[in-house]
Design a protein around this nucleic acid. Structure first.
Lengths: 226, 226
DNA sequence: ACTCCGATTTAGAGTCGTCTAACCCTAAAT
DNA sequence: ATTTAGGGTTAGACGACTCTAAATCGGAGT
C-alpha cells in the first residue's frame, strides 16, 4: 500500500488519540492535532475510508481498521525507535528527540528500521517510556500505568512514562528529577489538578500543573504489588 | 529560504550535472535525471529563476547562482554525511547507502547534520570517495582525479572516487577489488572504452565497460608525483 | 541563406492537500 | 417537540507539481 506522508500522519494521530478510550475519534480532534481545518480533515477521512484504513460514521467520528492500525503502528515504531537511537547514539537529550523523529519517521526504509533496532538491541520503550511496537506490528499491550493525577498525598509511585513532547516541559521535568524510572512521593494533589511531589532523584519537590501532570504516568512500585 | 523538497532536488541535480563542465545545464538533462518530462522541468526552472536560485537563458540552459549553489551544497553535504554515517555506524555497505541517503537528505535538521558530522569527526569524503562540502558550504575544491578511461596500458593508478550509485555495479566493483584507496594496474583500454585492470586488492583482473569505467576516477600514485 | 529535426517552451488539464464560506446534522436544553 | 449551539460536511477555489499535445526555437547541413 503506497501512502502519502500526510495520510500516514492522519493515521498516526488517530491511533494516538484512540489510546485510552473506546470513543470514536472526532474530526475536530484530528484537526487540532494536525493544525489543519475541519473540512481538510473531512476530505482526508473520505480518502482514508475509501482505502479501507478507517471506519467512518459521518458526523460520529472514526476508528482505525486493522489495516489502518498496522500502518499507524509502523509509523509509531519508526518514531520511537528513532527517538531511542538519537538519545542513545547521537547524544540527543530526551527533550529534543521528538521533532527530529517526526521529521524522519516517514522517510526511513524497512532496512534502516531494522538496523536501528539491531543497534539498540530491540528496545521495548523509547526515552519517554512509551512502548515501541515490535517488528510484527502487533498492538503493544497497554502499560498498567495511570496519570499521576489519580494518586493522593502520601502515595509512593514510580514514573513509567512521560507522554509529553514539548521540549521546554521535558527539560523542566528532567531538571526536577521527573523521568522514567524515578520514584516520586506525592505531597499534594490540589483540587485544580496540580500535583506536588518529591523526586528521590533530585530530592527536591516539584509542582506539576494539571496539563503537565496529566502526561506523567506512574505505577505503584513493584514491591508493593502482589 | 523555505524550499520544497522537489526544488532542492532540482538544485542538487543541476549542481551535479554542472560538475566538470562549464556548459549550461539543459532542460532535457535535468528531465532525464529526475525522470520527469521536459515541460515539467521548464516550469520548475521558471520558479527557480524567480527565486534567484538559477540563472536561465531560454532555450540555452541554466547555471546555479551562488545562492542556488549554496542550497545544492547543503543537500549534497547532507547526502554524503548520511552515506558516511550509515556505513560507519549502521553497518551499511557502500553499495546500499545511496538510496537511503536520498530518502533522508531533505529531512534532517541542522542539528542532526552537526551531530552526525561530530560523530564522524568531520569527514571530508563519503564512502565513494566524493568530497563532503564543509559546514560553511564553500564549494569543495575539485579533486585532481581523472576517469580511468584517460589512462593507458601499463599505468599504475590509485582509485580516488567511484561516482556511481547503482548498487549492483558497486557490489560488483567491491567484489573485484575496485574501491577508493586501492591501486590498479591498467592492463588494457579497448577502443570502445572498456578498461581492464588488475587490482592489488583482489589480485584478479577486472573489466569495466565504458559506462562503468567512466565513473571510476583515479590519480597517479603519490610517490610518482612531484 | 534555407530547411529540417530535435530540443524547448507554451497551453491546457489533472491530482493532491489545503483553505474559506455556506450549509447541515446532532445532541442538549428548554 | 422545538430550539439552538457547536461541530461536521459540502462546495468551490487555490497553489504546487505533474502530464500530454501543440507550437516554436535554433543549430547542422546543405
Amino acid at each position: 500500500m503506497m501512502l502519502s506522508d500526510v495520510m500516514e500522519d492522519y493515521l498516526k494521530v488517530i491511533y494516538q488519540l484512540q489510546q485510552g478510550t473506546d470513543d470514536r475519534i472526532k474530526t475536530s480532534e484530528i484537526a487540532d492535532e494536525l493544525d489543519v481545518t475541519s473540512p481538510t480533515v473531512t476530505s482526508m477521512l473520505e480518502k482514508l475510508e475509501d482505502r479501507g484504513l478507517i471506519d467512518r460514521e459521518k458526523y460520529r467520528g472514526v476508528t482505525l481498521t486493522d489495516e489502518g492500525e498496522t500502518v499507524a503502528l509502523e509509523i509509531v515504531r519508526h518514531h520511537r525507535l528513532l527517538e531511542a537511537y538519537l538519545t542513545e547514539h547521537l547524544d540527543y537529550d530526551w527533550s529534543e528527540v521528538h521533532d527530529e523523529a517526526d521529521r524522519l519517521e516517514h522517510h526511513i526504509s524497512e532496512d534502516f528500521e531494522e538496523r536501528v533496532a539491531d543497534a539498540l538491541d530491540e528496545p521495548d520503550v523509547d526515552p519517554h517510556g512509551s512502548p515501541i511496537p515490535n517488528a510484527d506490528l502487533e498492538p503493544p499491550e497497554r502499560p498498567d500505568s495511570d496519570s499521576v493525577i489519580e494518586f493522593e498525598e502520601g502515595d509512593a509511585v514510580v514514573v513509567e512514562e512521560v507522554a509529553d513532547h514539548d521540549p521546554e516541559i521535558l527539560s523542566y521535568l528532567a531538571d526536577h528529577g521527573v523521568e522514567p524510572g524515578v520514584e516520586l512521593e506525592i505531597l499534594e494533589v490540589a483540587p485544580f489538578g496540580m500535583v506536588t511531589a518529591r523526586s528521590n532523584e533530585s530530592d527536591r519537590s516539584v509542582s506539576l500543573p494539571e496539563h503537565v501532570a496529566h502526561h506523567v504516568r506512574v505505577a505503584r512500585p513493584a514491591e508493593l504489588e502482589q
